[in-house]
């Protein structure tokens, strides 16, 4: 039967109508694929110095399509690897934010009453705190491992998720179908997993997409300052910092990584907006 269309199927078709979101999705997929397999396909390697090509501008013939840096490392490969690291950290941090925020918000929203007010009061207090500066403090105090970085960056994002999920949970919990399910004899776990979670999923997916660019920006910010990803690994933030330092001599060192970063952030934001419109029929115009 072709006319059976679940809300998910409808959402997908609505997303496909959103041309900016589709284009973003295509660009993002291409960038992710390039970041994952690109360095492997390239004749150059990120750590190998090309002594004949130090600080060379972009040139198709030499094989260094985006030029080389001061040490003769191929910038295309370095940018792709930087993108991979930035994406990895951002996605991992977004997952940390989402899991923490969703659990916190859902528990607070579904419990209500005093538990809710205590939990959300905590979020309010943390919201007033300058999380980014705490991240700087943490990276000062502890070893700068990628795991700490992920945890720190993830901590900057979960508060908003918790608030959104809580209000969504409260709105859902007051809908009659939740009550109807209880009246049908469903157990609390059944209510949560059969009714609450599937209806929250749209919000959470949308937020994940909007969180990733935020996480990319925070990671790049820290790496730009030198307290994020540590050498020899480098993320887009490190590359931009290097490029900014060599601005007058080798501007291509800045332009490539910066363009990648901006493109990533733009595409994730457009995709997130598209998802939000697609998953929430009320927002459709």
């Amino acid at each position: 039967m072709t006319r059976d269309r679940s809300l998910w199927a409808e959402s997908v078709s609505r997303l496909l109508d959103h041309s900016a979101a589709v284009a973003s999705l295509a660009i993002l997929s291409a960038m992710v694929v390039a970041a994952v397999i690109g360095p492997w396909l390239s004749p150059h390697q990120a750590e190998v110095l090309d002594w004949s090509m130090m600080g060379a501008p972009p040139d198709l013939l030499s094989g260094h399509w985006m030029g080389t840096d001061r040490l003769g490392r191929d910038l295309l490969v370095r940018t792709l690897e930087g993108m991979r690291i930035s994406l990895l950290i951002a996605v991992a941090a977004a997952i940390v934010s989402l899991v923490l925020g969703t659990l916190w918000g859902a528990i607070a929203g579904y419990s209500g009453g005093r538990i809710d007010s205590v939990m959300m009061r905590g979020v309010d207090v943390l919201f007033a705190m300058p999380t980014l500066f705490f991240v700087i403090l943490l990276t000062t105090l502890f070893s700068r491992s990628p795991l700490l970085l992920i945890a720190c960056i993830g901590l900057t994002g979960w508060l908003t998720v918790a608030r959104v999920v809580r209000s969504e949970t409260m709105a859902l919990a007051s809908r009659e179908f939740i009550e109807a399910s209880v009246a049908c004899g469903a157990r609390p776990a059944g209510v949560v997993f059969r009714h609450l979670v599937p209806n929250l999923a749209g919000t959470v997916v949308t937020y994940a997409t909007l969180l990733i660019p935020q996480m990319i920006l925070v990671e790049s910010f820290l790496s730009f300052l030198g307290i994020g990803v540590q050498e020899p690994a480098s993320s887009l933030g490190n590359l931009i910092a290097e490029g900014a330092a060599e601005l007058d001599a080798a501007p291509w060192m800045l332009v490539g990584p910066a363009a990648c970063l901006v493109l990533l952030v733009f595409c994730f934001n457009y995709l997130g907006d598209g998802l939000r419109d697609a998953l929430d029929p009320r927002r459709r115009r």
């Binding site: 679940s6 998910w8 009659e176 179908f177 009550e179 109807a180 009246a183 049908c184 599937p198 209806n199």
Partner: peptide, 14 residues
């Protein structure tokens, strides 16, 4: 058993 006021709202949309 119970029949609810809001016919659409009492059915899980998913």
């Amino acid at each position: 058993q119970m029949v609810f006021q809001d016919p659409r709202g009492s059915l899980n949309p998913r």
